[in-house]
Amino acid sequence: MKWRYSIPALLFLGLGGIFYFTLTKIGRGTLDVREIPSPLIGKAAPHFALPSLLEPSDLIDSNVWRGQSYLLNVWGSWCEGCKEEHSTLIALARVAGVPLIGMAWKDDHASARAMLTELGNPYSVVVADDAGRVAIDFGVYGAPETFLISADGIILAKHVGVMSDTVWRSTFAPKITNGASR
């Protein structure tokens, strides 16, 4: 048997090995192919001034959080993933130690409010980004997304998709303790 005829089989076995490695990494949760590093991390968070969802006459300026870290969660009542993460957010809001700001993204105000009444309100403040302009500034391309912003207005962490305890512990919690010491 001439060995060169075995090359294709060996090459493919190698390829299969890499696929196996990748899949087990995804299975263990140590690799997320959907995660895209945000170019905004380490940059200043965009400034915004948006009406409050619950008190539409109030305009909320992001400068009010100067000097304090906060979490920004982009959500919508139309978004299934947001409903899924809602209970996690309610639990996190208690332990996070920083305010959780909600941003209702391109949502119908009535149904957004209805969702908070029904599932509970984890947010200290909810702003309404009806035109989606601020979400574009934050580079949001799908809800839910969650940002951690430091006391000096720098984006420290970002998560695309449903927030979970694992994500919180691995990505957000360490940065909150670090951020607090800044």
């Binding site: 048997m1 005829y5 075995s6 294709p8 089989a9 493919f12 299969g16 696929f19 196996y20």
Partner: peptide, 17 residues
């Protein structure tokens, strides 16, 4: 992946022989 390896590697081994 299992199916893939079975069919592809199986046929390539047959090919090698």
């Amino acid at each position: 992946l299992g199916l893939l390896l079975f069919f592809i590697v199986g046929s390539l081994v047959l090919y090698a022989v």
